[in-house]
């Protein structure tokens, strides 16, 4: 039983910092959504920033960064599976 020991969960201070980070990213997202000159890059930026927020919450608030590897695999399984399956559904329905 090596290397599978749970790392200690972070302290309240980390949580506050992460929350401030998330708020800042959201503010940037909203600002970007108004910048028409970005064109197609706007979509890419918004999806990237949304993804950053998503995985920050999962990693820190939901402790996936600190807990055993199995939980991470279970969740990623769902995320990756959903992305592939529904990308295929939408492609088959010519939604893009």
């Amino acid at each position: 039983m090596v290397a599978t020991v749970t790392r200690p969960h972070p302290t309240a201070k980390t949580y506050w910092l992460v929350a401030a980070f998330l708020a800042a990213v959201t503010a940037v997202e909203i600002a970007i959504s108004y910048l028409e000159f970005l064109g197609p890059a706007k979509g890419v930026l918004l999806v990237t920033l949304g993804g950053v927020k998503f995985f920050t919450v999962v990693a820190v608030f939901m402790h996936l960064r600190y807990d055993v590897r199995g939980y991470r695999m279970l969740f990623l399984f769902g995320i990756v599976g959903t992305l592939i399956v529904f990308a295929a559904v939408l492609a088959a329905m010519q939604a893009f």
Binding site: L74, F75, F77, G78, I79, G81, T82, V85, V89
Partner: peptide, 19 residues
Amino acid sequence: TAMWIWLGSEVFFFGAMIS
């Protein structure tokens, strides 16, 4: 473990609606 499995299931639930 069960909670994470359930959340993986929920991902598909919302995935279908977002699609």
